[in-house]
Design a binder for these strands. Structure first.
Lengths: 146, 146
DNA sequence: GCAAATTAGATTGTGTACAATTTAATTACA
DNA sequence: TGTAATTAAATTGTACACAATCTAATTTGC
């Protein structure tokens, strides 16, 4: 009585290419990010800060799908590099407010060409890109409400 | 003279939802994987071994998009749990052959229901799943030849 | 045949990720 | 109003992930 194990084959997984492609694409950012002294995770945190100037750790984590265990050391590193400040909210001492500095804002001008540069490394046509974007956010939306 | 920074907005990235969705979906495996004492990375390594019984570290890394820096400690952990053995190839002492053990093979029966269980956590219809699969492997294929 | 180049894996160091726990501040509510 | 519950970050411990380097074995090319 042979059992059917096809469901456990790597090529039948959807999660595996998701995991692998994410890793490989993130890796493509490194040569460009190292020029501005950021890691990928630091870069996406800076993206939120370029947009909002200041934000609590909790809110930042909601945007990035990251928790304080990841963000606390990451934000300390960004503070050390002089790109952000960290200070407790006066209204609620539990809350830590992260603010972008002038140096952090300046960094945006150096970063602005990165999306295009990485884009040229990742071969995907515009239709596939749109489909991928749509499906990924559908998945993320579906996971949130549980 | 205002510069256009839209390319740096989080919502205009394709990589970010890829990164976030991969992380969140992998996280969904943990409750099921912890029951059989595996992490996600160990699980995908076992998938290759369930399929092939034995493989070199190099080949395993090619399948999983992982290098020896990640695989060496991971395979030592799997060896410690008794799921694999590690021994040098006699034909070429540089090569380390990883072999599945009887316990490792038995684990497959416990694991076989995991894909379905995780599937029910991730809301995606069959058309989207097929599209996603196609696009992700297209990306992975495009990154390889460079 | 042998030195140079290549290859496979291991090691080191840095930076995530995240579960679980802890601490301190705030809020709920009896 | 005072205690219990909740909340936000920080901390701790484990496990990747990978660049860079190292070591040992094998292959190349003369």
């Amino acid at each position: 009585m042979e059992q059917d194990f096809d469901a456990l084959k790597l090529e039948n997984q959807l999660c595996f290419p998701l995991y692998a492609a994410a890793k490989e694409v993130v890796k493509k950012y490194n040569p460009f990010l190292s020029e501005i002294d950021l890691t990928y995770t630091q870069y996406i945190a800076m993206m939120v800060l370029w947009d909002k100037q200041e934000i609590s750790v909790k809110e930042l984590g909601e945007h990035l799908y990251l928790d304080s265990g990841t963000l606390t050391p990451l934000l300390k590193a960004l503070e050390k590099k002089g790109f952000v400040t960290r200070q407790r909210s006066e209204a609620d001492e539990r809350v830590l407010i992260v603010k972008i500095t002038d140096d952090g804002l300046k960094l945006r001008e150096k970063a602005v060409s990165i999306p295009e540069q990485v884009g040229s490394c990742v071969k995907i046509n515009s239709d596939d890109a749109k489909e991928l974007y749509r499906i990924l956010y559908k998945i993320l939306g579906g996971l949130k409400n549980e």
